[in-house]
Design a protein around this nucleic acid. Sequence first.
DNA 1: AGTTGTTGCGCACAGGTGTGCGCAGTATCT
DNA 2: AGATACTGCGCACACCTGTGCGCAACAACT
Lengths: 336, 336
Amino acid sequence: MGKYVTITEIARQLNVSHSTVSRALNGHGRISEKMRSQVVELAERLGYQSNSTAHRLSKGESGIIGVIVPDLSIHFFTKVIAGIQAVLQQAGYEIMLFNTAESMEQEVRAIEQCLKYRVDGVLAAISMKTNAFTHFQKLLRYEMPLVFFDRVANFLPVPKVVTNDYQAASKATRYLISSGCRCIAHITASINLNNSNNRLYGYMDALKEAGMPVKEALIHYYEFDRESIGQFLEKALKQHPGLDGLFVFNDYVANYTVNVLQKLGKQIPTDISVIGFSDEPVATYMTPQLSTVQHGGEKMGGLAAQKLISIIKKNEPVDGEKILINPELVLRGTTR
Amino acid sequence: MGKYVTITEIARQLNVSHSTVSRALNGHGRISEKMRSQVVELAERLGYQSNSTAHRLSKGESGIIGVIVPDLSIHFFTKVIAGIQAVLQQAGYEIMLFNTAESMEQEVRAIEQCLKYRVDGVLAAISMKTNAFTHFQKLLRYEMPLVFFDRVANFLPVPKVVTNDYQAASKATRYLISSGCRCIAHITASINLNNSNNRLYGYMDALKEAGMPVKEALIHYYEFDRESIGQFLEKALKQHPGLDGLFVFNDYVANYTVNVLQKLGKQIPTDISVIGFSDEPVATYMTPQLSTVQHGGEKMGGLAAQKLISIIKKNEPVDGEKILINPELVLRGTTR
DNA sequence: AGTTGTTGCGCACAGGTGTGCGCAGTATCT
DNA sequence: AGATACTGCGCACACCTGTGCGCAACAACT
């Protein structure tokens, strides 16, 4: 007994019209209690499943939200998706997932599909290779509700949910200071400027705030060449033997850094405290476990989804509002 | 500017019927070249996007595949999804993603939604807490194409794509032997029996095959208590000072184990070779980098998707066929 | 010129659901 | 008993696309 049961089929079996069945199941129009229970009972028995597609077609809503992510293998984004899903599910939406693999063509295609499927809204993080934005503008021309998260196009009049990198970095640095560190180095990334620059400024301002000098010799611009980290640390330790704190822009690199420091004979955190960034799984699998900044992926996803829903529902005027997420410190074994 | 353009609207503007427009755009019926170009031109100008929902409704296909995953934060599953997406996109399908967060209720709900949206097929990995299978049986009663991956229900007559854990473990162990190891220990998990038991047998059989004894003292059953690993290693090294090889059921635990061994003064891989399992990102962030078994997530996703498509398209009879994926060794710095 | 073949397009329906309107039947009130 | 109100349900349309059938117009043939 294969295929789906429709309300028309139920209507046929009961010798009534399909509208009666519809009313019985939804309780919207007037319907006698006797007929209602009769219909409900048969629907139950035949295993009726309402056809969302048809329903949404006639209502003009799809019940689907397009979620566009640049790289699923970045753990952070999976947390964002979890946050998105929790909120959307509450509101009765499902997720159509697009993984652009950092390709602009894929991103364009994803948006095309969102339009074709008459998705009710789009949540997107922009790919690194995206250098034109006509596809997003097209979305806006169709008045499609859109919210950016994490990777945003600042100049588009679209709400954006992003991490407060500046505050996060300053918080981490201030903690290092308050726990007794007197000479704090920072490893930052030379690409992906938006995020890491803000973290760099947060680090520098926290130092200045505490009356500590910012020294170029204590800042390393990482460019995906691991060896440079060992060289940097050896040189920094030679110039500043009192080096006792380190803030790293990313947990994976922090993990590597801890290994290098241990190999150089340093005790973590007794000699040197280390704080990473993102709270990736690797953080809890290190020895000692890594203190880090919780990137707040689920929170970001949840807020972005809420914002999107309120745009869809209340039709609120869309502006370029930027929602900042203040990350939390997660203190584990690499700090005092 | 504003809402969607329909073929009816295009037809109205050209004073023809909507079927003419449909034919012009799809080229299925007979149509004059003049009319065709006229329609296409106007459609282009108005920014026409065909309404997939309506199209699929009339064709009786949704063009959507439901993908049910127990935990997105497990990196392996994101690779599977990437593999799935690559294949499905080729075939013109989109993904509706469900993350059950290892909850059976969520899994039941996901399947309910798949039915409501008249999804064309379902790819599922079962949650750990699933102890009844009526929801999957319901899916089968509706003749919904279904393929399991990684976490499967063996007794259901559904194709399954899984890792060949036995062969993977035996391959890893044989490599350790061939690279000169003469005393090889194994850390396995005491839960999730299916997978880890097969790995355990693969390890044991490889030893026997090489004429080496299987010793209980060299096998540790890990139960998420890290301290036990240090205790196990110290004891094993005392009883078997010649211990020079280690096969671990999971990269994260392997990472921890390498840290412990280094702390015990062992050189990796000079004194002891280590092989992990899964090729998680952490493997490349260790020093030395971890040799491991590539779990083959993308391959698994791709094969599962292909199987599903062939069921949908050719309507091939469904059986409980089990497709095994033979993982590859990834040799890095923790082996000789 | 009449017959046959071909071409271009409209009509009407299918797919499943929801709803405004109206009709018939019953209950209530005067 | 007649007027009014209300109840229960069917009809027809909307949402949008695709297609089988048939009609009309025209070309080509005998």
